[in-house]
Simulated scan of single mutants.
Amino acid sequence: MTQRFMRATGRLRIIFGPAHSSSLDHEMTEENQRLLKQRQAEAQQWETIRRPDGSTYVVPKNPEDKSLR
């Protein structure tokens, strides 16, 4: 989809310059792996509660745990 968009907007690239395009299949750097693990740990401390009307909200799984907040 991105490649089709870039082909369709080729005339704009003449004016604004080329966009950087890279492969999405590259290896993750150590920094990105650390950030991913940190984000996963942060996400695991929360629990999603669904109300009867279908809406959702997020609450801490353990309110006393302040390690990531």
Rank of each mutant, 00 (worst) to 15 (best):
residue 1 M to G: 08
residue 1 M to N: 08
residue 1 M to D: 11
residue 3 Q to M: 13
residue 4 R to D: 14
residue 4 R to Q: 14
residue 4 R to Y: 14
residue 4 R to M: 11
residue 5 F to P: 01
residue 6 M to V: 04
residue 6 M to C: 05
residue 6 M to W: 00
residue 6 M to H: 01
residue 7 R to T: 13
residue 8 A to V: 10
residue 8 A to Q: 14
residue 8 A to H: 11
residue 8 A to R: 09
residue 9 T to H: 07
residue 9 T to Y: 05
residue 9 T to G: 02
residue 10 G to H: 04
residue 10 G to K: 04
residue 11 R to A: 02
residue 11 R to L: 04
residue 11 R to S: 05
residue 11 R to C: 02
residue 11 R to T: 02
residue 11 R to D: 06
residue 12 L to K: 04
residue 12 L to D: 07
residue 12 L to R: 07
residue 13 R to T: 08
residue 13 R to E: 10
residue 14 I to S: 08
residue 14 I to Y: 05
residue 15 I to N: 05
residue 15 I to D: 09
residue 15 I to K: 09
residue 16 F to M: 12
residue 16 F to N: 08
residue 16 F to Q: 06
residue 17 G to F: 06
residue 18 P to Y: 02
residue 18 P to G: 03
residue 18 P to Q: 14
residue 18 P to R: 08
residue 18 P to W: 02
residue 19 A to Q: 13
residue 19 A to M: 13
residue 19 A to L: 15
residue 20 H to I: 07
residue 20 H to W: 13
residue 21 S to H: 15
residue 22 S to R: 12
residue 22 S to D: 13
residue 22 S to C: 10
residue 22 S to P: 00
residue 22 S to G: 06
residue 23 S to H: 10
residue 24 L to I: 13
residue 24 L to T: 12
residue 26 H to T: 15
residue 26 H to F: 14
residue 27 E to T: 06
residue 27 E to M: 04
residue 27 E to W: 07
residue 29 T to K: 08
residue 30 E to S: 13
residue 30 E to T: 06
residue 31 E to Q: 11
residue 31 E to L: 05
residue 31 E to F: 02
residue 32 N to G: 04
residue 33 Q to M: 15
residue 34 R to F: 08
residue 34 R to P: 01
residue 34 R to T: 10
residue 35 L to N: 11
residue 35 L to I: 03
residue 36 L to F: 12
residue 36 L to R: 12
residue 36 L to G: 04
residue 36 L to M: 15
residue 37 K to H: 14
residue 38 Q to E: 15
residue 39 R to H: 13
residue 39 R to L: 12
residue 40 Q to F: 07
residue 41 A to E: 13
residue 41 A to Y: 03
residue 42 E to C: 09
residue 42 E to P: 00
residue 43 A to D: 12
residue 43 A to L: 10
residue 43 A to C: 08
residue 44 Q to G: 06
residue 44 Q to W: 07
residue 45 Q to K: 03
residue 47 E to S: 09
residue 47 E to N: 11
residue 49 I to M: 09
residue 49 I to Y: 05
residue 50 R to V: 15
residue 51 R to G: 02
residue 53 D to I: 04
residue 54 G to N: 10
residue 55 S to E: 14
residue 55 S to F: 12
residue 56 T to C: 09
residue 56 T to I: 12
residue 57 Y to T: 11
residue 57 Y to L: 13
residue 58 V to E: 12
residue 58 V to Y: 04
residue 58 V to F: 04
residue 59 V to A: 14
residue 60 P to W: 02
residue 60 P to M: 05
residue 60 P to L: 07
residue 61 K to P: 01
residue 61 K to I: 05
residue 62 N to L: 00
residue 62 N to P: 00
residue 62 N to A: 00
residue 63 P to T: 02
residue 63 P to L: 03
residue 64 E to H: 03
residue 64 E to A: 12
residue 65 D to P: 00
residue 65 D to V: 00
residue 66 K to R: 15
residue 66 K to N: 11
residue 66 K to Y: 03
residue 66 K to C: 02
residue 66 K to M: 07
residue 66 K to T: 10
residue 67 S to R: 00
residue 67 S to F: 01
residue 67 S to C: 00
residue 67 S to M: 00
residue 68 L to E: 05
